[in-house]
Simulated assay, not measured.
Amino acid sequence: MPEGHSVHRIARQFDRNFVGRTAAASSPQGRFAEGAAIIDGCTATRVRAQGKQMFLEFDDGLWLRVHLGIYGAWDFAGEIAVDPTIAATNGRMGQTNQRGTTVEAVLDDTGENSLTSIGAPRHTRMQVRMSEQTTGLADGGGEWPPPVVGQVRLRLLTDTTCADLRGPTACELQTPDEMLATLARLGPDPLVDDLDDAEARFVTAVRRRQTPIALLLMDQAVVAGIGNVYRAEMLFRARLDPHTPGRDLPEDVVRALWWDWVHLLGIGVETGQMMTMDDLSPDAWRRAMASRDDRHWVYRRAGLPCRVCGTGIVLEELGARKLYWCPCCQA
C-alpha cells in the first residue's frame, strides 16, 4: 500500500502542475463519470495531503478526495514541473544522504522513485505501464493527449500535463464540510500539522489504549500515513516488542516514536523511497536506493538473519497484515 511519503509527493506534483490551472476531467473507466462531469472545466485551487489521503480543491467549492488503498497510483505524463526535493531523486541532481554525503541519485527498479508513476509499486501494474505511450517530462514527444490505457478511474488534463488515476480505494467529491469531517477523523501528519501539537495528540492517543503498539501505528486515527513498511521499521529502530500495549509504553518512548516518524517521513518525501537505515556509506546508500533488499532492517526479511544480532526475522499476522520483527532485538 502506498504510504504517507508517496501521497505527499503526489500532492506536490499537483501543486506545481495543476493548482491554478483549468483541467478537463473524464472517467474513461466510467466509474467516476458523474463526478468527473461536475469538475470538468474547473480550476484546481488548492491541494492537501493528510496521511494516505489527498484532497484537491476546485473553484466550484468541491474537493476531490482520493485514497489510493493497496493498488492505487497516479500516472503523470507531459511537461511536469518538478518540486526541487523531488527533482533531486530523478537523476538530475545529486542525492544527499543522512550524513550529508552527496552521491548520484539511483532509481528503484520497481519505479517507486519515478516522477511519472507514484503510488502502488509499479510491478503490480507492469503490464499496463509497458503498453503506455506517454510523453517525456518536458520533451513534448509522443501523442498528446496520451492514449488511455487500462482502467483509468479519473483523468485530469491541462494543456501540458496529464494525470491518470488507477485502482484507488476511494475517489469522490466532497463539500467543504465533508472534507473537514474526513480530516477530523485522521490522526496527525508531521508535514501539515503543528509538530508539537501533533506530538501531544499522538502521545495521548497511544498511551490511553491497551491495543498493541504495532496496531496503533497502523491506525490512521492515531497517526496518519504509517503503513506496513514504516510500522515494522519504526518498531525495530526503537527496539520495541510490537505486542506491547500502548498504555505500557513510557511517555519518552512514545515521543521518540513520533520524532522518528517525522525523520523518516521527511526522507521518504525527499527521496521517494521508504529509506529506514541511517548512517550509510555512499555505496551502501546507492545500493539501498536501487534495491529494497538493502533498504530495510526487518521488512520482508522473514527467516533472514537480523542485521544487528543474527537472529532469524519473524513473520506473523497481526490485524490481518504481515508483521516483521526481530524476537531478540525487540524482546
Rank of each mutant, 00 (worst) to 15 (best):
P2T: 00
P2L: 02
H5C: 09
H5V: 02
H5W: 02
H5I: 01
V7E: 02
I10K: 06
R12C: 03
R12M: 12
Q13L: 08
R21Q: 15
Q29T: 13
G30P: 13
A33T: 12
E34C: 01
G35F: 04
A36I: 03
D40H: 12
A44N: 07
R48I: 09
R48T: 11
G51F: 03
M54P: 08
L56W: 09
E57G: 04
W63Q: 04
R65W: 09
V66A: 08
H67M: 05
Y71I: 04
F76H: 10
A77P: 00
E79G: 12
A81P: 00
A81H: 12
T85W: 00
R92G: 08
G94K: 03
G94M: 04
Q95A: 01
Q98E: 08
G100Y: 03
V103W: 07
E104I: 05
V106T: 07
L107S: 09
L107H: 15
G111S: 09
I118N: 00
A120D: 09
A120Y: 03
R125D: 00
M130C: 06
S131A: 14
T134P: 01
G140M: 12
E143G: 00
W144D: 03
P145M: 07
V152L: 02
D159C: 12
P168A: 15
T169D: 14
A181Q: 11
L183D: 05
P188Y: 12
P190R: 07
D193R: 09
D193V: 06
E199C: 15
A200Y: 05
R201P: 10
V203Q: 08
R207T: 07
L215M: 06
L215I: 05
L216P: 07
D219I: 08
V223F: 02
I226G: 01
N228L: 04
E233M: 09
F236W: 10
P242Q: 13
H243F: 15
D248R: 15
E251I: 11
E251M: 14
D252F: 10
V254H: 10
L257M: 09
W258N: 00
W259S: 01
G266C: 08
V269L: 06
V269I: 13
E270T: 08
T271H: 04
G272P: 10
D278L: 15
L280M: 12
S281Q: 13
D283F: 11
R287G: 05
A288T: 05
M289S: 06
M289F: 03
S291K: 13
D294G: 06
H296R: 05
V298A: 08
V298C: 14
Y299N: 14
G303T: 01
L304G: 05
L304D: 11
G319R: 14
G319D: 03
R321E: 08
R321I: 14
R321G: 11
W325G: 04
C326P: 06
C329R: 11
Q330W: 10
Q330S: 07
A331W: 11
